[in-house]
């Protein structure tokens, strides 16, 4: 269960992690708790799954290439094809969605050619067409995810 300090940890530090030698100490000072407690709470939230990691969100394509891909998978083959897609380390999101195009995934890699090779590999292994929908323009200003605790 989360208490008010957990919530503040999640709300107040999605951006602007202090870039200092001991960031968790600095966070603790803001919250009025010790460095050890910040670390323990983050570890607990990570194990519970509500924190993915303490890290960076990198602007798309600043440090590599990526695309969104979609496939129309026959329902009886969905588990099999989804597993095949997820097995690629370059795939970082993979969802079933409500549409004839029912499998949607993001491929991110060091280069455009590596992304293309992953899409080719998935098409070849599955025998299905893969729709490649690369980002053309990015409009979002990422301020983190505003959580409402209602």
């Amino acid at each position: 269960m989360m208490d008010p300090l957990d919530r503040r940890l999640l709300d107040e530090f999605q951006r602007d992690l202090p870039l200092v030698s001991r960031p968790y100490l600095a966070m603790g000072e803001q919250l009025g708790i010790s460095e050890d407690e910040v670390i323990l709470r983050l570890e607990r939230l990570r194990l519970a799954g509500s924190v993915a990691r303490v890290g960076a969100v990198v602007r798309p394509h600043a440090a590599g290439a990526s695309t969104l891909a979609a496939m129309a998978v026959p329902p009886v083959r969905l588990d099999e094809v989804a597993a095949l897609v997820s097995a690629y380390p370059q795939v970082n999101h993979n969802y079933q969605r409500e549409h004839r195009l029912n499998l949607w995934f993001v491929v991110a890699a060091g280069s455009q050619s590596e992304v293309a090779a992953v899409l080719d590999g998935i098409a070849r292994q599955s025998g299905l067409a893969v729709l490649d929908l690369p980002m053309l323009e990015d409009f979002h200003i990422d301020l983190g995810f505003g959580l409402s605790w209602t």
Binding site: L9, R15, V51, R59
Partner: peptide, 14 residues
């Protein structure tokens, strides 16, 4: 290049 640096939450689990 880095848009934000900090705690990255999982929507689903929250």
């Amino acid at each position: 290049v880095i848009r934000r640096l900090g705690v990255i939450v999982r929507h689903h689990e929250l």
